[in-house]
């Protein structure tokens, strides 16, 4: 397998504090990769470096073999990345259907948009809410809508930052199923998550971030079995 997204020696400093230090990360083409770590591990910063809302202090980001370190987020999106942010960011005053149209219209001609929008509404189980302003949806539904918008771009790589935050157990499980279905159809997916049950449901490989550095990287089963990982999650930071 080849890496679709690679970080090489990524550093991000804020003043004197290194939020991300010397991170090497390779997301293989076709996998579901989870990025985990306790609060303050640097997950969000790393995520922002990958999608381009932060510029790294040092290091490079490669996407499909191209150096995208200096590229703006929209350029990375045009190359086949798609992103769902942690806090649901949908166009709150616009109807659900228009949210999807805005996501679809760059890729599709006018005649194709309507059908694709219906398909996505069905997939997201939001048919009945199509005419409502997106801001009136429940928190979980907003998360789904945003995932739907990210999917509308038909990305090669989907980046999800805590996609299940604020979802019920049932919604979380269905999100997991959706992610697995997407992956089965050939999409590479990187998920930043807290929820270990959810990670167990979906993950193939896991990278553990701790104090801004890569602490461990392995298959999900071995990560779960690793006592050192359990320890940093329990708050003991003095591990070798």
């Amino acid at each position: 397998m080849t890496a679709i997204l690679e970080a090489r020696g990524l550093h991000k400093r804020f003043g004197g504090l290194a939020a991300v230090a010397d991170v090497d990360l390779a997301i293989e083409d076709g996998e579901i990769h989870c990025l985990i770590g306790p609060n303050g591990a640097g997950k969000s910063t790393l995520f922002k470096l990958l999608l381009g809302t932060y510029d790294p202090s040092a290091g490079r980001v490669m996407f499909q073999g191209v150096d995208v370190t200096r590229q703006k987020p929209f350029e990375r999106v045009l190359h086949g990345m798609s992103i769902k942010m942690q806090v649901p960011s949908v166009f709150r005053d616009l109807p659900v259907s228009q949210n999807l149209v805005i996501a679809l219209q760059r890729r599709l001609p006018r005649t194709g948009i309507e059908a694709e929008m219906r398909r996505l509404l069905a997939l997201l189980e939001l048919e009945e809410q199509a005419g409502k302003p997106a801001g009136e949806l429940s928190h979980g539904q907003q998360q789904w809508l945003e995932i739907g918008m990210a999917l509308a771009l038909q990305p090669r790589l989907l980046l999800l930052d805590e996609p299940t935050a604020g979802m019920s157990t049932d919604e979380t499980f269905r999100t997991g199923e959706l992610i697995q279905r997407l992956n089965a159809s050939g999409m590479t997916i990187l998920v930043v998550e807290h929820d270990m049950a959810f990670i167990r449901q979906i993950a193939q490989r896991v990278t553990v971030l701790h104090l801004g550095r890569v602490f461990a990287q392995d298959s999900i089963d071995r990560i779960i079995a690793d006592p050192r990982v359990a320890e940093i999650y329990l708050g003991k930071t003095d591990v070798d």
């Binding site: 929209f74 999106v77 798609s82 942010m85 709150r92 990210a150």
Partner: peptide, 13 residues
């Protein structure tokens, strides 16, 4: 509504 979201849909805001 949300410039960042628009950018993340691939638009040069």
């Amino acid at each position: 509504e949300d410039p960042l979201r628009a950018e993340l849909l691939g638009y040069d805001v």
